[in-house]
Computed example of a mutant assay.
Amino acid sequence: MKHLVGTLFIVSAPSGTGKTSLVNALVRDTNHLKLSISHTTRPARPKEIDGYNYHFIDEAKFKQMEMAGVFMESAKVFGNYYGTSQETVIKMLEDSHDVVLEIDWQGAQQVVKRMPDAVMIFILPPSIETLRERLENRDQDSPEVIDNRMEKAKAELKHHPMADFLVVNDDFEEALKGMKAIIKSNRLTTTKQQIINRRLLAKLVQ
């Protein structure tokens, strides 16, 4: 793929680390950052909106889209399917936006194979105990489901070395500052600035 102004950022973390809240705040506070809305077969949770949080579709539709090559990545997580539209992501990058994907490590592996320039951020909990406490405080899942999520979280945490950056979500505002710094510094690299400020540089070095 040609050099683009926009960068694809992947945010991955076990359930309960607060990644969705961090990503939403990051997108809200960063003008050039867009969130890629994934497709999923899981039911919408209370207050979730179709087309805003996810594109909620049935399994038959998901499989049809998967067979048609629509997704740049797809994975089955807790019995539900998730996928990211490649066309949508590429269009936003070509329009000079940075794009953030909130996906699990399996999906991240698939994306990095297709787009090696993608930047991956892994969110860590401050402790295993805090992670369980956050899952329990959400009051969304049964104890059995929480136990399952904890086992999966411990397995997911072992994949943190694949990320380019690690952010510990102990204090929300500090974690958000760290993520903003990653986004901003990436846009200030020489490669990106040569594209963004090509006219200025042409005048300065003529």
Rank of each mutant, 00 (worst) to 15 (best):
R132D: 03
M150G: 12
K180H: 15
I103A: 02
N186S: 07
K180E: 15
V111W: 04
Q106N: 03
P143A: 06
I121V: 09
L176T: 07
S96Y: 03
A202S: 04
K154D: 02
H160A: 15
L176M: 14
F172G: 00
D164Q: 12
Q194T: 05
K192A: 13
R149C: 00
R187T: 03
G107H: 07
Q193Y: 06
R132Q: 11
I195E: 14
A175I: 09
T189H: 00
L131N: 14
I103C: 03
Q140T: 07
E151P: 02
E136P: 01
V168M: 12
N169Q: 05
I121F: 00
V89F: 00
S127L: 10
Q106V: 02
I182M: 10
P116L: 15
N148M: 14
E156P: 03
D95P: 04
T130K: 03
P125G: 09
V111C: 11
I123H: 11
V89Y: 04
L131G: 10
S96L: 06
A118S: 14
D104T: 01
Q110G: 10
F165L: 11
K154I: 05
A153K: 04
R138T: 02
P161S: 15
M92S: 10
L131R: 11
L166S: 09
A202L: 00
V119R: 13
E102V: 04
D95C: 11
M179K: 07
I128D: 07
I103H: 00
F122E: 05
E129P: 05
M120T: 08
V168K: 05
R187H: 05
R149M: 00
D117G: 06
R134S: 10
F122L: 06
L176S: 09
L200I: 13
S185K: 05
D95E: 14
N148V: 03
P143Y: 05
G107T: 10
R198I: 01
F172N: 00
L131M: 11
L135T: 09
G107N: 12
L131V: 12
R198T: 04
I182L: 10
A108P: 09
L166G: 09
T191R: 12
P125A: 14
N197V: 02
T130H: 07
K180G: 14
P125N: 05
T191Y: 05
N186E: 08
R187S: 06
R138K: 08
E136S: 04
I128Y: 01
I182T: 13
R149W: 06
E174A: 12
L124P: 07
I196K: 14
L188I: 05
E129C: 04
Q106Y: 00
F165K: 10
V168T: 15
V167I: 15
E94D: 13
H97I: 01
S96N: 13
K177S: 14
F172Q: 01
L201G: 00
D147H: 08
H160Y: 14
D98S: 13
